[in-house]
Each structure stands twice: as structure tokens, then as C-alpha cells.
């Protein structure tokens, strides 16, 4: 019994710290935003200038982060559970985002068709899709369909890249 309550108390402390840490980050954002707002160029003829609302928002965020810092409510078990991500899963997420970034950076160089087909195939493969033939067909057909639809039917040009069409 004693151990249990002790354990709970510790968890409580930790979570409280988590909220407080977020509050500090938000306060920093608020201060930075306020700094930028105060430095906005003035428009001489405006009755209500461009900086009025941002300054108000900056102070509001600062005020709310103070409230969050002082907030005593404890996170529920379900809320806490959301952060329970294993290292390997985090790595997988990182790689998927890496793929996305590669896709974006090469989209206009290699063209939509090629990149999309490679992305769908590669990403699905990486996430554990084993039916390589289906995967290949889907990635190629899907890219072709979207590309044809946009470029030829709707006449909205997606980047063609290195392919001649």
C-alpha cells in the first residue's frame, strides 16, 4: 500500500514537471513573438496598426502559459499512455518523415510520376508490406492515374521532371 502511494506521488511529480516544462517552452515562444510584434514596422496612417492584435495575442499566450505552469490537474492514465512510444517505433517514424523530406526535395527534379511511384513502393516496403508485386502495381498505377488526371484531364500541371511527358 505504502509503495503504491509512493509510486503514484512520484509519477504525479514527474507529470507536473512535464506540464511545467511545456509551459516554459510556450512562455519562451510568447516572449519571442512579443519581441517580433513590438518590432513590426509602423504604418504612419493606420488607426489600428498591424502590431495591436499580435501584441495582445503574445500577452495572452504568456498568461496562459503561467496558468498552465500553476495548473495542478494531473494527467489521466490515458493521456500519459499517448507518450508511451518505444524507441524502435520512434525510429520508424523518423525514417518515414525522412522519406517524406526526400520526396519533397526531389519532387520537382525527378518529377511527380517517378517520385510518387518510388515513394509509395519504398515506404510501404519499409513499413512491412510483403506483397511486392501488388505493391509495385499499385504504386505505378496510382501515380499514373493521378498524373494523367491532373495533367491531361484537369490541365493542372504537376512537375514532369526527367520523364518526357
Amino acid at each position: 500500500m505504502f509503495y503504491l502511494s509512493f509510486y503514484q506521488k512520484e509519477v504525479k511529480e514527474m507529470l507536473k514537471k512535464m506540464n511545467q516544462r511545456i509551459a516554459l517552452i510556450l512562455a519562451a515562444i510568447a516572449v519571442f513573438y512579443l519581441f517580433l510584434s513590438y518590432n513590426l514596422p509602423k504604418y504612419p496612417n493606420a488607426i489600428i496598426d498591424a502590431d495591436v492584435v499580435p501584441i495582445g495575442l503574445g500577452y495572452l499566450l504568456l498568461f496562459l502559459s503561467v496558468l498552465l505552469f500553476l495548473d495542478k490537474t494531473v494527467e489521466t492514465e490515458a493521456e500519459k499512455q499517448k507518450r508511451n512510444i518505444s524507441k524502435s517505433n520512434l525510429l520508424v517514424l523518423g525514417v518515414v518523415f525522412g522519406f517524406i523530406l526526400i520526396y519533397i526535395s526531389l519532387l520537382e527534379i525527378l518529377g511527380f510520376l517517378l517520385m510518387t511511384a518510388i515513394f509509395i513502393f519504398g515506404c510501404s516496403l519499409f513499413l512491412g508490406y510483403k506483397k511486392h508485386v501488388t505493391n509495385g502495381i499499385v504504386s505505378v498505377v496510382f501515380s499514373f492515374a493521378i498524373y494523367a488526371l491532373f495533367n491531361y484531364l484537369l490541365r493542372i500541371n504537376l512537375p514532369s521532371g526527367i520523364l518526357p511527358f
Binding site: V95, G98, F99, I102, L106, I109, L110, L114, G122, F126
Partner: peptide, 13 residues
């Protein structure tokens, strides 16, 4: 696997 796919994409580029 991730490495291979990335390299493939880069090489193509």
C-alpha cells in the same frame, strides 16, 4: 531497408 531505399532515391536524383 530504410538505408537502401534512401540511397536508391538519392542515386536516382
Amino acid at each position: 531497408l530504410a538505408g537502401i531505399v534512401s540511397i536508391l532515391m538519392l542515386l536516382l536524383a
